[in-house]
């Protein structure tokens, strides 16, 4: 029996490998990247358009339902992408005991930042 065949056909078809995650990290990095192309371009264009706007004008803009939706989507995609990207950077360069703590900190930090940003955007959106 050749070496390629030592794994069961089902395991080969699933392609999850020894980590049991398969290409999920790689794939989600791409999916979030695809989402971020229009979302970040929209955000940068909006910020440029609002150069010199006062607080009241800016809040009125943020209260538009479509803007609230886009802002929440941006925060989700941005911090998901950030968490995945920083995770790879840590895995590549940090090899000491700090690695585990850094990986946990990045995951939790990104989750906390996304949640905080979404709550802030929704508070403005609902006029809280």
């Amino acid at each position: 029996m050749d070496r390629q065949r030592t794994r069961s056909p089902l395991a080969r078809a699933r392609g999850f490998g020894s980590a049991k995650h398969g290409a999920e990290h790689w794939w989600m990095q791409r999916v979030s990247a695809v989402a971020l192309v229009p979302l970040t371009l929209w955000f940068v264009a909006s910020i440029i358009a609002h150069t010199g706007s006062d607080y009241a004008t800016f809040i009125v803009w943020l209260r538009t339902p479509l803007i609230s939706i886009l802002m929440v989507l941006l925060l989700i995609a941005l911090f998901y992408h950030t968490a995945l990207g920083l995770q790879v950077v840590i895995e590549d360069y940090v090899h000491s005991g700090v690695k585990f703590a850094a990986l946990v900190a990045v995951r939790l930090g990104c989750f906390a930042l996304a949640t905080t940003g979404i709550v802030a955007a929704l508070r403005i959106g609902f006029g809280g």
Binding site: F58, I59, M71, L75, L86, C110, G117, V119, A120, I124
Partner: peptide, 18 residues
């Protein structure tokens, strides 16, 4: 990595606006 820091600024900015 630099843009990750900007993500923090984005949240600070939204919280300030709220």
């Amino acid at each position: 990595a630099l843009l990750s820091v900007c993500g923090i600024v984005l949240v600070v900015w939204l919280v300030a606006a709220a």
